[in-house]
Design a protein around this nucleic acid. Structure first.
Length: 647
DNA sequence: GCCGTTTTCGGCCCGACTGTTTTCAGTCG
């Protein structure tokens, strides 16, 4: 989904190259693709811009270096045309004649393509014939019955557009992973219990563990003779706000809160979340697509609706390379399928009892769902000895380093937090309360310098008790220390040296937002280089669906941390496991691993229940290709003690 | 616009669904 805000070419805040950052280029290329589409450009050209944007965003090296060294055109997906535009903008700060494209397309059109059923072609037709360039105008045109007589439109289209405008207004966009999974598992469970259902499995972005989920996809396996009764049963389930449509093999639904209230057998974690949602009297809903297939077809359909679009494209290409064709019903020789399509073509499918056999027929190892994003997994799975990592699991976690108590803005005591950690089977808990300068809304939140020793002695006392009792558990006395606008850390050097570990975090985002990426990166690196600095907390400050992170070159920061680690320091980076943050972004995890920067999965808990959030962090780590050995909090308490500043 | 055991043009992933048409274009995932 394209954001409408900031729909213009960026101006540079710098007076020397690089005038623009990679992130800015990624955004511009994506916008250009949309504008081209709306102005009726060739679809393949549009895709070229999308591909180039994607290529840039997954590029790990510094863009300016690549351009300076003349290596830009070696990047797959960037050719002469787009490469020239990128080079011009970065080196000279200008955008060629791109401004004319921006001028040509009214920004209102971008909003209009968000209406379900209206794509770029139809939006352009409305603009060309009726001059419609805003949602308001479109609504009026519907009311005046001006749409239905247009070629290619009709009465039904007009009504659909009119209803769609309302839908767009209510449309919440994507749903956070925790909430989406809650709905998804609940529906999955209810369908599984229906008679005649062999299996119901969540697919789509929920199964891939994206940090936000668009709509839910559920694939249901059932013998053909049972399909009709199963469909009727599903339509009658509680918690369905609306049935958008259904046929012989597919149901499209909108789920509402009641779906959660009657859920059974979910863990304590999910029950609490369900309660919270109900308490807030939230009107959150989520769309769900249910596909009913036969047991033989199930693995193909599951794989098809699990892979990201990009992963699936690559998979189909792998099939083509072997004289095969892959669709949601099977994998079959092109020669036998001929001109038939869909289920008919799949009559000749190779039999696969599960997903792994589909991959095997394409000479690949099975790829965990989280990794199906075309981020290198196809290549890694295609080698004779798999290069896919053995992904971390939640049970590997032995503690966490960033948690709050009543000393700052937490709501439980040291003892209560420790007890909760012990009941999770952890060997340690890192306390990292806020530092002195932090105040939110004029209220001071952090621990003042003179109170730090109090917390220290309380922790020493508790640790002594466990040690005496022979309990393998300890608290680490750390700090979530503010990184100030000039890159200095809060507290004096003396105070910071008291702590076993320092989680450096940015909280006062204002000045960081008003600076460019290059300056922010410089300041943050300055903070990281401080000898007392241990862990970078919620690295970009993003809050999912609320605010973007600060402009920052994460690749450069991770590279620098890697260098410092090579010099014998311990500089780690956090995956903040709060489902509303999930920052570090999963796309950067693999890079951090390659640069030898350890990752911590930190729940950032503010109460005893918050510790459970670690589970979401593990999902992100899996998505980011991380193994047990990449994660700092899979180490034992004794190992961490020897790594930290513990005296 | 990008790409290439088919090096400079002709491809570029697959299919369902919808509504408009009367064979298909556009949208969606």
């Amino acid at each position: 989904m394209v954001k409408v805000g900031g729909w213009s070419l960026p101006n540079s805040r710098r007076d020397e190259p690089p005038y623009f950052s990679k992130t800015q280029l990624v955004d511009v290329l994506e916008q250009v693709a949309v504008l081209l589409e709306l102005s009726g450009a060739n679809g393949f050209k549009v895709r070229a811009y999308q591909n180039a944007s994607r290529a840039l965003s997954s590029m790990e090296e510094d863009l300016f270096s690549i351009i300076s060294e003349g290596r830009l055109l070696q990047v797959k997906g960037i050719g002469k045309g787009i490469g020239g535009l990128i080079t011009e903008s970065v080196l000279h700060g200008t955008w060629g004649d791109m401004q004319s494209l921006y001028d040509k397309v009214p920004t209102g059109l971008i909003e209009i393509v968000g209406i379900p059923g209206l794509g770029p072609k139809k939006v352009k037709a409305l603009y060309d014939s009726l001059g419609i360039e805003s949602i308001e105008q479109l609504k009026t045109a519907c009311e005046l019955d001006h749409i239905s007589s247009l070629p290619g439109f009709g009465k039904k289209s007009q009504k659909k557009i009119f209803d769609g405008i309302d839908l767009l207004r209510r449309y919440q966009g994507r749903t956070r992973m925790d909430v989406g999974l809650l709905f998804g598992r609940s529906l999955e469970e209810k369908i599984s219990l229906i008679e005649g259902v062999e299996k119901a499995q969540l697919a789509g972005s929920a199964r891939r563990r994206r940090e936000t989920i668009g709509d839910l996809d559920i694939v249901v396996s059932s013998l053909a003779i049972n399909h009709q009764t199963v469909i009727q049963e599903i339509l009658g389930l509680p918690g369905i706000a609306e049935v958008k449509g259904y046929g012989d093999s597919k149901i499209s639904l909108i789920l509402e809160q009641e779906m959660l209230s009657s859920s059974i057998g979910t863990g304590a974690l999910d029950e609490r979340l369900a309660e919270t949602l109900m308490d807030r009297n939230s009107d959150a809903t989520i769309d769900a697509q249910v596909r009913i297939v036969t047991p033989e077809t199930f693995p193909f359909t599951l794989a098809y609706f699990t892979g990201s679009k990009e992963h699936n494209i690559r998979m189909r290409q792998e099939a083509i390379n072997r004289g095969l064709r892959l669709n949601e019903f099977g994998l079959f020789p092109e020669s036998l399928a001929g001109s038939s399509i869909g289920m008919e073509a799949a009559k000749h499918t190779l039999l696969c009892s599960d997903e792994s056999e589909i991959y095997k027929n394409l000479d690949m190892h099975w790829v965990p769902p989280e990794m199906r994003e075309d981020m290198g997994e196809i290549e890694a799975a295609s080698t004779s000895k798999s290069l896919l990592p053995e992904l971390i699991i939640p049970e590997d976690i032995k503690g966490a380093f960033h948690n709050h108590t009543i000393y700052s803005d937490g709501s439980n005591t040291l003892e209560e937090m420790a007890q909760a950690a012990q009941s999770l089977g952890w060997q340690y808990l890192g306390i990292a309360d806020h530092s002195e300068t932090l105040n939110i809304g004029g209220r001071s939140i952090g621990i003042s310098s003179n109170l730090v020793p109090n917390q220290r002695s309380e922790i020493i006392k508790l640790n002594q008790i466990w040690s005496d009792e022979g309990v393998d558990f300890r608290l680490f006395h750390g700090s979530e220390c503010d990184i100030l606008a000039d890159g200095k850390l809060d507290y004096s050097d003396d105070i910071r040296n008291i702590f076993s570990h320092v989680v450096g975090s940015i909280h006062a985002l204002g000045s960081w937002r008003n600076r460019d990426e290059i300056e922010n990166t410089e300041m943050l690196i300055r903070a990281i280089e401080d000898p007392t600095f241990t862990i970078l907390g919620h690295p970009t400050g993003r809050i999912l669906q609320v605010r973007e992170g600060i402009p920052i070159d994460m690749h450069a920061i991770i590279r620098r941390m890697g260098e410092l680690n090579m010099e014998g320091n311990l500089k780690a980076i956090e995956i903040n496991a709060s489902p509303y943050r999930l920052d570090l972004d999963w796309r950067l995890c693999k890079f951090a691993k390659e640069q030898k920067v350890p990752i911590c999965i930190n729940p950032d808990a503010h109460d005893v229940n918050g510790l459970n959030d670690v589970w979401y962090g593990v999902q992100i780590a899996r998505k980011g290709w991380l193994e047990r050995s990449d994660i700092l909090n899979t180490k034992t308490g004794a190992e961490i003690e020897s790594l930290f500043n513990v005296r």
